[in-house]
Design a protein around this nucleic acid. Sequence first.
DNA 1: GTCATCACATTGTCCTGACAATGATCGGAA
DNA 2: TTCCGATCATTGTCAGGACAATGTGATGAC
Lengths: 266, 266
Amino acid sequence: MTRVPVNRTTGYSRPVTTTAPTGLDFTLDRSSPVPLYYQLAQQLEAAIEHGVLSPGSLLGNEIELAGRLGLSRPTVRQAIQSLVDKGLLVRRRGVGTQVVHSQVKRPLELSSLYDDLEAAGQSPTTLVLRNAVRPAPAEVAAALGIAEGHPVHHIERLRLTHDQPMAFLSNHVPEGLLDLDTEQLESTGLYRMMRGAGITLHSARQSISARLATPDEAERLGEPEGAALLTMQRTAYDDTGRAVEYGTHIYRASRYAFDFQLLVRP
Amino acid sequence: MTRVPVNRTTGYSRPVTTTAPTGLDFTLDRSSPVPLYYQLAQQLEAAIEHGVLSPGSLLGNEIELAGRLGLSRPTVRQAIQSLVDKGLLVRRRGVGTQVVHSQVKRPLELSSLYDDLEAAGQSPTTLVLRNAVRPAPAEVAAALGIAEGHPVHHIERLRLTHDQPMAFLSNHVPEGLLDLDTEQLESTGLYRMMRGAGITLHSARQSISARLATPDEAERLGEPEGAALLTMQRTAYDDTGRAVEYGTHIYRASRYAFDFQLLVRP
DNA sequence: GTCATCACATTGTCCTGACAATGATCGGAA
DNA sequence: TTCCGATCATTGTCAGGACAATGTGATGAC
């Protein structure tokens, strides 16, 4: 590959790296229980979010920054590192730390459909079709790592936005983990209830694919027969490694897409 | 919720937290250019992988571990932290650091279809249907952040496994970024070529949904007309924030699913 | 027996200091 | 001009220490 100025060959027109405005002032409260590095990280993130720190601008070197803020270098580094992990900053040895150009939004979380829709202003509603305890079928028991026949909650819900069906959610939760109140299920999401019950989610294994709607499913979701459906299966684990939920969801492909951003870990 | 022993109510039978075997010996090479914390992290990861450190076992406190290895505590912490970030370890203040129970495999990478299939032993092959430069259509220009009409490579590929079509891949790459040799495209993946050209991927924005196959697509993929297809659109950015690739892919839902693990960031 | 309190173990935060590794820049030599 | 090397700026790695915050378990009071 020949070495030609990049902006000529690619058509990118982007401002050359600029130094950060020196007027950046951060307020750190040493008496606060919030860690200093976290206070700094949040203010940096806010500055990036509001464009005070423009994309591509350099942050100024760590040592000088630490001195200016009255912090030690490790503390400043910890703050910067957390934003690097979020994909907001890029560090280059010998160069400095700069704000990434592209707008990074969310590095993909264990997304809750309810939260996602609510955040998007879609005002989701839920119809609980089923909420009962039954012996775990083989497939569910395998996914949850419990004995076949062990009692599990079985929940079936229809999630709607603007009074239109969006997804059909079937979930299994081991019995005894949390109270599954139908009313609460209708007014909030399952994951939020889990957090409320003191369960801290740690990881999840997901599988996303597609298939055609059966007549039953089509009717339930208000789709024509043979429509394309987006399917997701997920097993979620808490921080002790217990499987706490196994879900099989189907989404109307005409109305829903999994939309996310992900980072390349170096 | 009543407080009853968890194993009674949930049916989990899991060994109580055990102490790590003291026989763990790590070999650290201070003359190696590989950072010490990284050497330690890799050996810890290997120990977890091979079951030497069993799920749920405690790692022993950091200070003692540091002393035993002849390292400082920050170095040991850095090693542990990297594994926490990978989801392999969980730290608890006042308790210790323990290996997570569930088997975490991959925390979801910016996956290359080619690499994924190869790793799964599927021996993928590629048929390049088109490899040309053309002016960017509006949609492509918008996704790549370049001017409409600016020259872009347009690649269309059919990916097969076991001589059966698996996916149809349409990609656009700004002209001048890298050489797109058709032969190389057939023998490897696009992302690998990018890395080879010195482009370091940083993040990507993806959207996954589904729809029915058009007659054309059905024919091309060997599916019946009106079959369900899994679709993905992706824009990838390098570490300077430039969009370096925009792809529109369709997968045979009967043969493919997006399968991944993700972590909840605390 | 049940509950609150205290001590202990362990990780979390923060500091100071030093040197190494790397990318960019600039000057001089071919 | 072109290329090479020295120099500089900046982040990367590592050490050692101090105290705070928090979960666990034991102790004691009721």
